[in-house]
Every structure is written in structure tokens, then in C-alpha cells.
Design a protein around this nucleic acid. Structure first.
Lengths: 351, 351
DNA sequence: CTGTTAGCGCGTTCAG
DNA sequence: CTGAACGCGCTAACAG
């Protein structure tokens, strides 16, 4: 692997001249520039970013910590962030914290060691420790998706309280009163906020006794399945379920299926967040859609702006709007039949 | 940010002694070790991996190039690779090539510049240029998911030919003869291989005239939709569709839906690869399931083994088995009704 | 067991 | 317009 020195030798100049050609960081005559560029091309030379970074104190890499890249919501965020980052010459390393503070700490440590330029963080908990750590090492950080109160930090997210409020209000307006919330873990802001939105809507309808309707688990398929099983064992059963994310919803749907309960005939159901169109064969649940791709983009933009000193001095808080998607048409009997036929299809004919 | 020098000063030793403590790379007396460790803790010191990398020539980061991290198949691969990598102290940067040779080249260049230790590559095309480039810079590479013939390189993938053969044979045995293939792009090995498997199965049943049944697009939702539209405009229509991946299948399902055609009553359909259980509300298509997570794990393991010099000298080629999943039960009338009710559910009651 | 010297590849500082 | 010297933070290689 040739170094700047090798190129310099070949071009008959000094290393610094080569450096100037590469970075346009100083005046170079046309003639020497041409010679240098020729040498670069011939030797297949690429500058060593580690060495560059050692001087500049930062390598052009961003860290992205999400709970689980397997969740389409975070995947889409990741894609948005990566597109913006690569446009600006940054790479993105991704880390899965699985909601574990332990893993989060380990990864942040690693990223700091690697001198990444900045970090996009979906914090495992609402406590400031993780962010303090990063900031204490002078690494820029933007908090994604979740809130961490009482700390000065840039943040990009959606309005979970408002979204949950919309979903639950929707159910209430349709006449539901016993609405069970299948939530994520306590201490995770999106879960806490969705609970807050739920409570707010319930209160508006004069309902104050819902403590037996609030379930708390994790944002996973299995947890959704388990919480739904619990719900189905209660009497009287709720008439509606509010799943706090897409995985929970799916787990719950499977549990309902096992009990031969249909949505919405036997049980109504809404969900915060949904699958991208390219995956969901037939979206059926009324949902709050979050602009995940834009979330990733905005977070990366903000971070990169900070890094290049373009961002305003003060901390920024960007809240992107959510959209309530009512799948009303899908419940007309006609459409229901269509859906039925379509979604059942197995890849074979009856013999 | 303290350096090894600062720590040394504080502990009253030389930098190299600190280095020895950190890396256990030399003998240090218990007493000095304790002093050094105390200093490290007090100063919140973390070694600079850039500086380490500058000496060792490599930073502990792996590059992962996939076509689109948004595709659950690649997401799951990524997760598998990341889990293994982090276990070994490596970070993973991910890049989306969108099947573009151009983007692939750009990313590889960037990764080489960054002195990543190794690269996991889902090649955009079956040509060796990209791999040649990486290898010429002495960076280890493992090819994932796809084949690149005529080049000496480690590879981990599934058997696309065999899987496609199974799927198509399945349809043929059920009596289908006019089976349309909605394929990915020419020149992408998985697409070419799935075509080969299709042809093989067709030939076995004495069918040699199928050229009008083979469609080629891209591995995307939109392309699946478009190809299906074309298929539906032909007369006589095929009786079965073979979607070469999950996105194509979904696009095709949507097109069928628009035409009020149901699967499998009006059209049979099978698909190579499928959604993870946590996303697919109701898997309905007969599919070839690929062990995506294991694919990512194996690729990362192989790469890391190479990096630590543990791998055998010769190139490795790991082919993981696929599984044919026949969703037969789903087509019984009873189950069909269940499914129908379940999948149609919208989050509300009828008013 | 510990320290000194030197250099990884690059870019800033200061001189030509 | 071009170059020499120095140092970023760390660690082999070689003393002591």
C-alpha cells in the first residue's frame, strides 16, 4: 500500500505537495499537479484516513446506536442517516443495544476509542449517563427517537404523546371504553410517552380507572404475544388493544389468531408505527405512521452540521409530525372479502 | 481527552508501561500496574484506536456492503454479522450499494482509506473488479449471498439454484405448467441462479418453451408490481408466479390485488425468501427460507478468523441450506377463514 | 521489570 | 509556488 511519501518520490516532489494536491489545501502549479495526479493514479494511491484522523483528532465515521437494527423502524432510520452521511463523506457504524444499558455503555466506549466524529443515539434509558459519557469525551451526539430529560443535547424525534393520544381518541370516539395498552418497558421514553398519551385521551373521556388495562413488557414480538395472552385471560376482556409498536402488534395478532379472535370483529386494534409499504402485504391496522427515513436524515444532518460548525450554538430539538392512518376502507365488507382472498393465498392450487 | 502520556505522568511511569498494562503486552509489577490502573480510572482514559491503528495498519472495523439495508433479508444478515463482530471487539460500518457498481466502488474506496480490517461484500455484479480492488489493497474480503465466478475469494451463501428448483418443482408437481418467473436483474448471481433453478425444473418436466414467461426487473417492490402488471396483461395468463425475492412478491401481490385476483384461487404464487416471523403478520406464500442471520454470522466469523490468521490457507466456500416452507395448511378452507378474519382487521369497530 | 528511541502516514508551521 | 521539520498517540525493538 503506497503512502504519500511513495507518491511524492515517484512524482519527484515532496510529500506535502502531494498532500496539497489531494486536499486542495495550498497552491500547486498546474504542471506539478498533473505529475502528482498521474503518480496517484498509477500507484493506485488512497490516503490513509487513520493517519489523517490522528492529526485531525476525528475520523469521518458516525456511530449509530439503535436498540435493534432488525426492527424496520430503526432500519429505515439507519438508511436515512446513512444516505445523508455518505453524501458528506462519512461512514456509519451501527450498534444494537437491545435496550441494554450495559451494551450501550460498551458500544459508546468503543466508538469513543475509535474517535468517531459523532454519534446518533437511541438511548436505552431516559437517564443522562450515556450522553454525559459521550459529551465528556468531546464527541458530538444527537439523540434519536427518544427523550432524555434534563440534559443539554440535540434531539430528533416524533411526538409519541400526541400520536398515542390520537390513536386512543380514535378508539374512544368509535365507542370503545375498555382499551388495553400493550406497552414497552418503563423508563423508555417512547413507552412512557405513549402511556401518557393514552392516559390523556382516557381522561378526556372521563375514564380514570384503567390501571388493570395497562400492560408493560418490551418492544418485541414475543412480549406482544405474551401481553396479549394475559389480556385474553381477563374478564371482561377489553374491546380494543393499543399496541405500542409494530412488533408488539404482530405478537398480539398472533395471540389473537390462536384464540380464534378476529380484528376488528372480536377485538379492535391500533398500533403505533407500521411496516414500510414494501413489506406489509396488506396493512390492516389503524396506525400512527412515523417518518422514520426523515428522522434518520434529520439527525444525521444536524450532527454533521454541528461537526462542521454550521449549526446554531444552542441545542436543537426537532420534532417530526406523525400521521394517523385510519384503515377505514378496509373494513367495508366488500374490501374485507378481497383482503381475505388475497392474504390467505398459499403458493399452490388445491388438489 | 487524556493520552497515554498523561496517564503515564500521573502514574509516575513511562508511556510504554501504560501501554503494557492496557494490552497485557509485557511484564509489569503488581504495584505499578495498580498505580497505572488507578490513573486510567481517575482520568477516564480510553486508548485512541486511530493511533493504535496507525501502527497496526488496521482499525478494528469491518465494512458491510449490502444492496439495501432496508430489506429484512440483509438487515438480518447485518445483525448476525454485527453480533459476531462486536463479540470480537470489531465495529461494523454498513453501506447501501443499491445494486450500483458506482456506489459500490465509491464505498470500497472509502473503506480502504479508512483502513478497515476487512469487508463483507454482497457484490453488485458478478464481475471481479470490486473484489480485485479490495484485495489489491490487502484488505480481506468475504463475499456474501452472491457468487463471483473465476476469483479466489472466501464466500458464504445459500444455494439459489437448488432453492429455485425446489420451489418450481413444487408448482409443477401441483399441476402448474405456465409458471412465470418475476426475477431480479441479469448479471446478479442470485437472479441468474434462480433462473437456472427454474429452467432446470421446467426441463425436468419436459417444458422447454418458457421464454415468454421469464421477466427480469430489479429486486424491488416497484419492480415486482410492474412485472406482475405485465404478466397480467398476457393471454393466456400463467397459472402461477415465482417471485425471486420478498420485495418482488409483495409488489406482485399488490398488483394482483388491484386486479381482484386472489392467491391461490386465481393465481398460485411462491417466493424465494420471506419476512422474519416478527414482521409477517400472516405468512401465506410457500417460500424458500434462507438462514439470513446465520449467513451474517458465518461470514463475520470467517472474516475474523482470516484476520487473526486462524483460517485455513485455502479459500473457503460456505453454502448454507435453505428450507422449503409449504404453507399447505393455510389453504384448507377452515384455516382460510381464520386467516381471512385475522388479516383484514382494521383498528376500529363498525359503526 | 522499566524506560528510550524511533516511526506508523499525514498535515500544520514556518522557511525558503 | 515548494519544502523541512515537527508532532498527532501509540507501540515495536532495543537498552538498562
Amino acid at each position: 500500500m503506497p503512502t504519500i511519501h511513495d507518491v511524492a518520490e515517484r512524482a519527484g516532489v515532496s510529500p506535502i505537495t502531494v498532500s496539497r494536491v489531494i486536499n486542495s489545501s495550498g497552491p500547486v502549479s498546474e504542471k506539478t499537479r498533473a505529475r502528482v495526479e498521474a503518480a496517484i493514479a498509477e500507484m493506485n494511491y488512497v490516503p490513509n484516513q487513520l493517519a489523517q484522523g490522528l492529526r485531525s483528532k476525528r475520523i469521518k465515521i458516525l456511530g449509530l446506536l439503535v436498540t435493534d437494527i432488525t426492527n424496520p423502524f430503526f432500519t429505515t432510520i439507519a438508511r436515512g442517516a446513512e444516505d445523508v452521511a455518505s453524501e458528506a463523506g462519512y461512514s456509519v457504524v451501527f450498534c444494537n443495544t437491545d435496550e441494554s444499558v450495559e451494551k450501550e455503555r460498551k458500544y459508546l466506549q468503543l466508538l469513543v476509542q475509535q474517535q468517531v466524529a459523532g454519534i446518533l443515539l437511541v438511548p436505552a434509558r431516559s437517564e443522562p449517563a450515556a450522553i454525559d459519557f459521550v459529551q465528556s469525551h468531546n464527541v458530538q451526539v444527537v439523540v434519536l427517537d427518544r427523550q432524555v430529560p434534563g440534559i443539554e443535547v440535540d434531539a430528533v424525534r416524533c411526538d409519541s404523546v400526541g400520536g398515542a393520544h390520537q390513536l386512543v381518541s380514535h378508539l374512544l370516539e368509535l365507542g370503545h371504553r375498555r382499551i388495553a395498552l400493550l406497552n414497552g418497558p418503563h423508563g423508555v421514553s417512547t413507552a412512557d410517552d405513549r402511556l401518557a398519551g393514552y392516559e390523556h385521551a382516557m381522561h378526556e373521556f372521563g375514564i380514570h380507572d384503567y390501571s388493570d388495562l395497562v400492560y408493560s413488557g418490551s418492544f418485541s414480538f414475543v412480549s406482544g404475544y405474551q401481553m396479549a395472552q394475559q389480556v385474553l385471560a381477563t374478564k371482561p376482556m377489553p374491546t380494543a388493544l393499543f399496541a405500542a409498536n409494530n412488533f408488539i402488534a404482530n405478537g398480539a395478532l398472533n395471540a389473537l389468531h390462536e384464540h380464534n379472535l378476529s380484528v376488528p370483529d372480536d377485538m379492535a386494534m391500533v398500533c403505533f408505527d407500521e411496516l414500510p409499504a414494501s413489506m406489509a402485504s396488506f396493512p390492516v391496522l389503524t396506525t400512527i405512521a412515523q417518518p422514520a427515513y426523515a428522522l434518520g436524515q434529520e439527525a444525521a444532518r444536524l450532527l454533521i452540521a454541528r461537526l462542521s460548525g454550521e449549526a446554531p450554538g444552542q441545542r436543537q430539538e426537532i420534532i417530526l409530525p406523525t400521521t394517523l392512518i385510519v384503515r377505514a376502507s378496509r373494513t367495508s365488507l366488500l374490501d374485507r372479502n378481497d383482503l381475505c382472498r388475497l392474504s390467505e393465498g398459499a403458493g399452490m392450487i388445491q388438489t
